[in-house]
């Protein structure tokens, strides 16, 4: 008896949380199947003669597909480069004994405390000098540098890669690079996924840096593209609505897919971030 009351209570609370946290997502899905002319009349949270018109309109008549491609390329490259360089640095900081190690660890700790939004403008000013404005690299490199990634990899290397295994390979005559690629990377695999996702999501969601660095509409990333429609497209409310709603739903479904399938790795990253400060 007591158990069934408690189950009902759980259900009620989870349902309440779902209503609040999923409402915008549900609304966007429903609204994306409505034409702009009827979107704000009738029930705001239920279908009304659903149609795929917005999707077809947006994907054929706007740069939506291009923006989606730009976002995937930039977030994917930043995640891959960032995870790899972090693993390499983490391997050295976690497994080697050398002078200056404390200093480098301190540098990484300071890096942890510089929020990326605070240096978007400085990065942009510097990139003007380096000729990186209006290039993919101008977004990929700054977002790939993750002090948290290196910090995470250092602890991960210390705690999970056994020294004996590395030494055994060295005695067999393997070079350090080979020890890293054939042994360390195998241990690093889950951590690589965690850092890849964290950097990928950070780049995918980044708005301020692309806003400064990418001034050419053909190079826009998705959030930037969707927001730019609002500024420039007010004379075409139908197309504006179609782009924003279908773009929103596609982005969200992609992220949900990624998050749900890799939740374990994301939590590992957040958990460590919290526990170790």
């Amino acid at each position: 008896m007591k158990k069934s009351i408690s189950n009902t209570f759980t259900l009620v609370v989870v349902a309440t949380l779902a209503i609040y946290f999923l409402l915008p997502i549900w609304w966007a899905i429903v609204a994306s199947t409505k034409l702009y002319s009827v979107a704000f009349s009738g029930s705001p949270i239920w279908f009304n003669g659903p149609t795929l018109f917005n999707y077809i309109y947006a994907f054929t008549k706007s740069s939506l597909l291009l923006w989606l491609g730009n976002s995937l390329i930039e977030a994917g490259s930043a995640g891959a480069i960032g995870a790899l360089v972090a693993a390499m640095a983490g391997f050295a900081l976690g497994k080697y004994v050398f002078r200056g190690k404390r200093l480098l660890t301190l540098v990484v700790a300071i890096g942890l405390m510089i929020p990326s939004t605070a240096i978007a403008f400085p990065t942009f000013v510097l990139e003007q000098q380096l000729g990186l404005v209006n290039t993919y690299e101008g977004v990929i490199f700054p977002t790939a540098v993750s002090a948290f990634g290196t910090y995470f990899m250092t602890i991960y290397a210390q705690e999970t890669i056994p020294k004996d295994v590395l030494d055994a390979a060295r005695i067999d005559g393997a070079s350090e690079w080979r020890v890293f690629t054939s042994i360390a990377l195998r241990y690093f695999r889950p951590a690589l996924v965690t850092i890849f996702i964290i950097i990928f999501a950070g780049t995918w969601n980044n708005y301020l840096l692309p806003l400064f660095v990418l001034r050419n509409a053909a190079l826009y990333m998705l959030p930037q593209g969707l927001a730019s429609v609002l500024i420039n497209g007010s004379t075409f409310p139908n197309l504006q609505y179609a782009i924003q709603l279908s773009g929103t739903v596609v982005t969200i479904l992609l992220m949900i897919g990624l998050f749900v399938s890799l939740e374990k790795y994301i939590e590992a990253g957040l958990g460590l971030g919290a526990v170790r400060g």
Binding site: V13, L17, A18, P223
Partner: peptide, 23 residues
Amino acid sequence: GKVIVFLPYGVPTVIGTLMWGYM
């Protein structure tokens, strides 16, 4: 419940703002 509560974190803030703005 944990997945539901965490999902909005995966939505780009610009897109989250656009959705709420429309709502």
